[in-house]
Amino acid sequence: MSSTNSGIANNRILITRTTVVLGLFFTAWRAYCHDLVPQLEHPVLFRSGYNLSYWLTRCCGADQWLLQRPARAWTLIGILCGSGLLLLWRPRRRLWAFLFAISYLFHTIIFNLYLCQTSHVQAGFVMLFWSFCASSDERFAQWWRVMRYYVCYIFFTAFLWKLNYGSLWHWRDGELFFREHAAPYLFWHPHTSLAGLYRYLLQHPVWLNAGEKMIFLCQGLFVTGFFTRNYDRAFIVFLLSFILLLAVLGHHFFIEFIVLILPLMRPGDWERLKRTDIQAVNYSTT
């Protein structure tokens, strides 16, 4: 086994628990905000778009079957949370991992169908949970490395699309995008300090346009992640900045993307985290 694989394999339990805790935390947050399928009170509008998963769901009637009786939808949430908790208790049990991953994916598909919008923000969890179905620690390490490539794939293909459709070459794109997304906030909150910042940026759009191009280029740099792990820390910093900037200026709160940091962490980071955890336990017991 390579040193990277053994480093990840030795920390399987900690990686699994951290990811699952994050998944359950955001599920609880969504429940608090009435964003779970059984809380939608049998929605009437949906948007299938050009998503084959939504088409399949609609054509086989799985969504209608689930929404017909609240008990069925709550059972799905029960399976999601129950298997998540059992996976925390027994992180190597493949059955709990499979149930957790499949129920999360199914819930995501149905929720996004009735949200009338494909929310990419859940794309991290939807894929990462499948790693925990690995039969051995060594295979888990391979899966986890694939997830790291998946993070690089997300950002690099985002860059390629911008290259293809042309927003990378359109200088005023940042300003025009900002005008569109800032309008609701400026309309309802015109006297806050954030609104003041928005007005400054609208008067000095060079910051918006240059900043947007910088973000696009940083996304392009993720291609190096396919060849070396040397820049993973820089990717983590970019990811955090990306979430923050998109929340403050773009009004898209991609906080669930934070889980994408975990595959970028080095085995040494997990070791340090484990030692801190053990020290904390020893401290609390003495």
């Binding site: 998963s53 994916l105 985002a158 911008k162 042309g166 569109e180 309008a183 609701p184 309802w188």
Partner: peptide
């Protein structure tokens, strides 16, 4: 240009934004 969750197309903000004379705030 199809999507199959979770194989997304990451083409958000890829199409150049257009200049509008007015913007809608739906609430």
């Amino acid at each position: 240009k199809f999507e199959l969750t979770p194989v997304y197309n990451w083409n958000m903000f890829a199409v150049p934004a257009k200049e509008h004379s007015s913007y809608d705030v739906v609430t």
